[in-house]
Simulated scan of single mutants.
Amino acid sequence: MGRIGEWVKKAQDLARGHSKQADQLLDRAERIAKEKTGHKYDEQIGKGADAVQRRYGGGQGAGGEQRRPDQSAQDQAPRPGPTPRPGPTPRPGQEPRGPQS
């Protein structure tokens, strides 16, 4: 096993032994990543965080259901799309154009 493989195994063992702290760290990293990317990749970041938690057995609440303590309703709500840009401003004396039919 290479050096990186050894580090990954050691990190997994530590996370399994301290899953609550690992969950908190992962939730914080997920939140920061979402903020830094302007929430453009929230779904992919969330899936990645879930995969990491499954790998070390974290994110389990009472009864074995997945638990995401720092995920607020804001993270789960759909985000509005970009605001459309306004059309050109008509020149004085020029009729504004409507949609073409």
Rank of each mutant, 00 (worst) to 15 (best):
A11D: 01
P86N: 05
P82T: 04
L14R: 04
Y41K: 07
G63N: 12
I32W: 10
P92Q: 06
A11W: 00
P86K: 03
D13W: 07
Q66M: 06
P86Q: 01
S72W: 02
R28H: 15
E6W: 06
L25W: 12
G98E: 13
P80N: 11
E43I: 00
A49V: 10
Y41P: 03
P80M: 02
P84V: 07
R28F: 15
I32G: 11
E65T: 09
R55A: 06
P90C: 09
L26V: 14
K10G: 14
G81V: 02
R31H: 15
S72G: 11
P96Y: 01
E6S: 13
H39F: 06
P90L: 13
P80T: 09
E35K: 04
E30L: 02
K34F: 05
E30A: 15
A51Q: 03
K47P: 10
S19C: 02
K34Y: 09
I32L: 09
G81P: 14
L14I: 12
L14E: 10
I32E: 11
Y41F: 04
W7P: 14
T83Q: 08
R67T: 09
E6Y: 10
G81C: 06
G57C: 07
R79C: 01
P78F: 06
R91W: 07
E35I: 05
D23I: 03
G38F: 04
A51R: 04
I4F: 07
R97W: 01
G64P: 15
G17N: 10
K20L: 03
P88F: 00
E65V: 02
K20A: 01
R31S: 15
P80Q: 15
K34S: 14
A77E: 15
Y56C: 03
A73P: 15
R55S: 09
T89V: 14
Q21C: 12
G81K: 15
H18Y: 11
P99H: 04
Y56A: 01
G63L: 04
S72P: 11
Q74D: 13
K9P: 09
P69A: 05
H18R: 13
S72D: 11
G48W: 01
K36R: 10
D13G: 14
Q94E: 06
R16M: 07
G58Q: 03
K34T: 14
Q94K: 10
G2V: 01
H18W: 08
T37E: 12
P84Q: 09
G46K: 00
Q100R: 03
D70L: 07
L26C: 10
K40H: 13
G87F: 02
H39C: 05
P69H: 01
A29R: 08
A62D: 15
P69G: 08
G87E: 10
Q74C: 05
R3C: 01
A51P: 07
P90W: 05
G58T: 05
R67V: 08
A15G: 06
R55I: 12
R3M: 05
G61W: 00
T83C: 04
K10A: 11
P69N: 04
Q21S: 06
D42I: 00
R55N: 08
G57Y: 12
P90M: 07
G59W: 00
Y56L: 02
A62C: 11
R79A: 00
T83W: 08
G93V: 08
K36A: 14
P92K: 09
G61Y: 00
D42S: 13
Q76K: 09
